[in-house]
């Protein structure tokens, strides 16, 4: 049988308390720092889309010292709305793609969250827009959204049409086809003799 005397070491009552305090303190500090870091990251990151110029312009005009004509402000509001619709449509189109990529692991959790945040941002934007319309004309809201849709689509179409010239130049450059001053082409390969199109 063990008869050795156990040496008695005096431990103060406070020791475990201090230990626990230090541990909890460290954990609390860590969690605060971590959340701060995350928040900083989130806010400092570039937003999804490039800067929303239409929105900026609207606010600048509305808050200007010399308030512009009301028609200008309405136009700016419509432009802001058209941009919002454009983004909303784009986000809607991209949602299934982002979904697949996220589940495949091709994008990070971070990006997925930011994508969903972008969607919420546009939702809030629409609500704000609707509120703004009330300032200009009561009851404009009902016609406002369809109006935005038309404007958005028409502007997109115009953009596409206006891009044709540049597209032509890019394609010819890519294909190594040179255009003489008189409009005739210099082809890098052999082309068929005058293949005049008679579509009809």
């Amino acid at each position: 049988m063990d008869e050795e005397e156990m040496p008695i070491t005096k431990i103060s009552v406070y020791t475990p308390l201090i230990y626990v305090t230090i541990m909890i303190g460290a954990l609390v500090v860590f969690s605060i720092k971590y959340r701060q870091k995350k928040l900083k990251e989130l806010t400092s990151r570039k937003p999804f889309f490039d800067r929303n110029i239409a929105k900026e312009m609207y606010f600048e005009l509305v808050n200007a010292d010399e308030k512009p004509n009301e028609q200008v402000l309405k136009a700016a509001l419509i432009r802001r709305g058209a941009e919002c619709i454009k983004r909303t449509l784009k986000l809607k189109e991209f949602t299934p793609f982002m979904n697949v990529l996220y589940h495949k692991g091709s994008i990070s959790d971070d990006l997925w969250e930011r994508f969903q945040t972008a969607q919420k941002v546009e939702e809030i934007e629409i609500q704000e827009l609707v509120q703004e319309t009330e300032k200009y004309k009561k009851g404009w809201v009902s016609k406002f959204l369809p109006l935005l849709q038309e404007v958005c689509l028409n502007e997109a179409l115009a953009k596409k049409y206006n891009g044709l010239k540049d597209k032509k130049v890019d394609l010819l450059h890519e294909w190594g086809i040179k255009v003489n001053d008189d409009g005739t082409y210099v082809f890098p390969n052999q082309t068929p003799h005058k293949q005049t199109a008679t579509v009809k």
Binding site: L164, K167, L171, Y185, K194, T196, A197
Partner: peptide, 16 residues
């Protein structure tokens, strides 16, 4: 465009 042999112009129009 096609009938005036401006094929590149015709192409981008047709593409649109």
């Amino acid at each position: 465009y096609m009938l005036s042999a401006k094929y590149a112009d015709a192409l981008v129009d047709a593409d649109l």
